[in-house]
Simulated assay, not measured.
Amino acid sequence: MSSYKILYAEDDETLAFLTKDNLEQNGYDVVHCLDGNLCMEAFKKEKFDICILDIMLPKKDGFEIAADIRKINNNVPIIFLSAKTLKEDRIKGLKLGADDYLVKPFSIEELALKIEIFLKRSQKNAISEKVSYRVGKYNFDTQNYLLTFDQEKITLTQRESELLKLFLDNKNTVLKREQILTSLWGDDDYFMGRSLDVFISRLRKILSTEQHISIENLHGIGFRFNIQD
């Protein structure tokens, strides 16, 4: 049985019961909260391996929870579940540091698969052969998702860390969009492509002071992470 602990925020009690019951049958330890305040109280008290957040919650919505979680922990994966289908809502969630977004009604099987993928990646990152890279002036610690220089520390999300590591392992080489999407998400559909653009934009901003580093967009092909050694 898995000992992984999931924080699950959902105010629809029927949906919450079904989802929690299914995940527990898969061996997960699920802590369910009916509103945003209870969710944050639970997060501060216990260590969670992944967070699953509905957006429309009483007292504190999922976006607010994600922002608060990222102030405390920038590494724990966050998956949004929402009836909101607007592209802007999805992009907002990703910009707040979420790693994925499922639209209601969702498949329990798909949710379980995404959880499994995130947890496997967390394990893989922890035992990765190469754990330290030089990125311009920064040292990149892949295990702790940290970019450091002197007293400066920038904590990346798990997804940002995975993308940066993929680029560094293939520096100065063209990576096709579908290669990146399949490597990070296991899928290359339209929405995942938009998600990739968000994460690349965030990495560009983080590395904007590095004159010898650029993420080149090759229209219709993919990207190249250029580093002048």
Rank of each mutant, 00 (worst) to 15 (best):
F199Y: 15
Q25V: 07
D49Q: 05
G222V: 02
V174C: 08
F118G: 05
E152V: 03
F167M: 08
F191A: 09
F118H: 15
K84Y: 10
A126P: 00
F140C: 04
K59H: 11
E109K: 10
E24P: 09
E110L: 15
L102D: 03
F118P: 09
N125S: 10
P58Q: 04
L163N: 01
K87R: 13
F17T: 12
D141P: 11
T14P: 02
C51L: 06
N170C: 01
L168T: 06
I115W: 09
N125M: 14
G62Q: 12
L86T: 11
R177H: 08
E160R: 14
N73H: 07
K45F: 08
R202P: 01
S107L: 11
L181V: 03
K130L: 00
L94Y: 08
V135M: 05
H219Q: 14
S195P: 00
S201C: 04
I79Y: 13
Y101R: 01
V103N: 07
L166N: 10
E88G: 08
E216H: 00
D141W: 02
E13Q: 12
I69N: 02
I127V: 15
N22K: 15
L166Y: 07
V135D: 07
R121N: 14
V103L: 03
M192I: 04
C51D: 03
K5E: 08
D197T: 15
K137R: 15
L96D: 01
Q151D: 14
N226V: 13
K95M: 12
H219A: 00
N125Q: 14
I55L: 10
K176F: 13
L81M: 10
T148L: 02
G36H: 05
E64Y: 05
L175I: 06
L7R: 01
Q143G: 13
K124V: 10
T148D: 05
K114M: 13
F17S: 06
A67D: 15
Q25M: 13
L164K: 03
V135I: 10
S161M: 09
S201M: 06
D169P: 06
V76W: 00
S214I: 00
Y8R: 01
E129S: 13
I213Y: 06
L34E: 13
L113Q: 12
I154Y: 02
D229L: 09
E216C: 05
L166M: 13
E216I: 12
I206D: 13
G97E: 04
D187F: 07
A112I: 06
D141A: 06
K176T: 06
N75F: 11
Q143I: 14
K59F: 09
V31E: 12
K59Y: 12
L34K: 14
D99L: 11
S107M: 06
S122W: 13
I180C: 11
N75P: 01
V30I: 11
G222Q: 01
R70S: 09
I117C: 10
I79S: 04
K153T: 08
Q25L: 14
Y8L: 02
R224M: 14
H219E: 12
D99Q: 07
R121Q: 13
Y101I: 10
T148I: 11
R134W: 00
I52E: 07
Q211N: 14
S183H: 08
I65S: 04
A66L: 05
L156W: 09
K59G: 00
F48T: 09
F167G: 03
H32M: 08
F225H: 03
L94E: 13
K71N: 12
R194G: 03
D29N: 07
D61Q: 04
G186I: 04
H32S: 15
T14L: 14
M56K: 06
